[in-house]
Computed example of a mutant assay.
Amino acid sequence: MIRMGRPRGFDEAEAVRSAATLFARRGYDGISVDDLVSHLGVHRNSLYKTFGSKRGLYLRALRWHLEHQVAPLLDAIRQAPDAATALHRSLDAQAAGADIGLLLMAVADRAPSDPDVAAEVERALADFDQAITQALTGGSPPPSPQAPAGDRPPPAEALAPALTATVLGLHLRGRVGAPAAEAVAALAGRLDRH
């Protein structure tokens, strides 16, 4: 007689999505395995068998979040014809429900102490920098190095990390309901002049 294992009683993809939402709201340390079992509707043994550990589930949830929730925002930024439009698109995406909460939480909560999370966060920040650099240059080559230094704007690669921090900060402010439209409009106006 062949014994078959009991079929998995939960949707793994849905568990990962739900865990991403939960970790984004409460952070890694704010969630116990019992919370995960209860919230996801899975048995403790199934959780461990499928994900190995709470950390394993967290890493899967973070990777899912970056691929499915952060990547569309990056695509919108990349397609912007200029940095001002990129900032507006970032704010519009947030207003439309784009959520980069787990990335924000990972930056502060887990990246400082977990090298695997730090690597994922570093890749995501580099992707933001690249998308913003693309928006800053609009696909055009950098200004001529023969132009006097005072007439040349800083290179896009030098500005991108500051604008990445701005985008992340605007999303962070949005998490607590702080209005960001005025700040974006002021910054976008400044960027349009350069």
Rank of each mutant, 00 (worst) to 15 (best):
M1V: 14
M1G: 15
M1I: 12
M4N: 14
M4A: 15
G5M: 13
G5N: 13
G9W: 08
F10Y: 02
E14T: 07
E14Y: 00
A19H: 06
T21Q: 14
L22T: 08
R26F: 09
R26W: 09
Y28P: 06
D29N: 11
G30H: 01
G30W: 00
S32Y: 04
S32A: 02
V33F: 10
D34N: 11
D34T: 12
D35E: 10
V37P: 01
V37A: 07
S38V: 11
H39M: 02
L40S: 03
H43K: 15
R44M: 07
S46V: 05
S46G: 13
L47H: 05
T50P: 07
G56C: 00
G56E: 02
L57D: 03
Y58P: 01
Y58E: 02
L59A: 12
R63G: 13
W64K: 06
L66H: 01
A71N: 09
A71S: 14
A71F: 03
D75W: 08
R78M: 03
Q79R: 15
P81L: 05
A83S: 06
A83K: 00
A84T: 04
T85C: 06
A86R: 02
L87S: 00
R89M: 00
S90W: 02
L91Q: 10
L91Y: 08
L91F: 05
A95E: 10
A95R: 15
A98G: 12
I100G: 12
L103S: 02
M105D: 04
V107K: 14
A108N: 10
A108K: 14
R110D: 11
R110L: 13
S113N: 12
D114A: 07
D116I: 10
E120D: 12
V121C: 05
V121S: 07
R123M: 05
A126L: 09
D129Q: 04
Q130P: 02
A131G: 03
I132R: 01
A135E: 03
T137C: 10
T137I: 06
G139P: 00
S140R: 15
P142L: 06
P142A: 11
P142Q: 11
P143N: 08
P143Q: 07
Q146M: 14
A147C: 10
P153Y: 08
P155S: 00
A156R: 04
A156F: 04
E157Y: 00
A158F: 04
A158V: 11
A158R: 11
A158I: 06
L159S: 06
A162V: 11
A165K: 06
T166F: 13
L168T: 04
L172A: 15
R175L: 14
A180H: 00
V184K: 09
A186Y: 08
L187H: 09
L187S: 07
A188S: 11
G189A: 14
G189D: 12
D192N: 13
H194K: 10
